[in-house]
């Protein structure tokens, strides 16, 4: 499971960084989204991976079995909300730039 998750994070990050460095605004925003998915998974994995465990303490407060760290899950939730909002904002700016410059190049004009 660790291997699958690491590969997933790695592939997402790699594609995200590559797209982020592309000259089209649409590629940049997709790159940023992929990167934020990768980061969200990464935060989640920092709470250690456990299958079938709830992020709440049992009635006895037993720590050893059936318990997963709830803090990273709360962090991921916050990060998702913030990332969603900023991506939406970026999308608006992207459209405004497209309308004003007539080009979807990040610099507003084609490089020659």
């Amino acid at each position: 499971m660790e291997l699958t998750l690491s590969i997933a994070i790695g592939v997402l990050t790699g594609s995200g960084v590559w797209l982020l460095l592309r000259p089209r605004t649409y590629q940049v925003i997709i790159g940023l989204s992929l990167l934020s998915y990768a980061v969200n998974l990464f935060i989640f994995s920092m709470g250690r991976l456990r299958v079938g465990a709830a992020p709440v303490l049992g009635a006895e407060g037993a720590l050893e079995a059936g318990y997963t760290d709830p803090v990273p899950q709360a962090l991921v939730l916050t990060a998702i909300v913030i990332g969603f909002a900023t991506t939406a904002l970026f999308l608006v700016v992207l459209l405004a730039a497209r309308g004003l410059t007539g080009s979807d190049h990040v610099d507003g004009r084609e490089s020659r």
């Binding site: 940049v28 940023l32 730039a97 990040v106």
Partner: peptide
């Protein structure tokens, strides 16, 4: 808008 785009990214 153009420098805003860079700033936000």
């Amino acid at each position: 808008v153009r420098s805003g785009l860079h700033y936000i990214a």
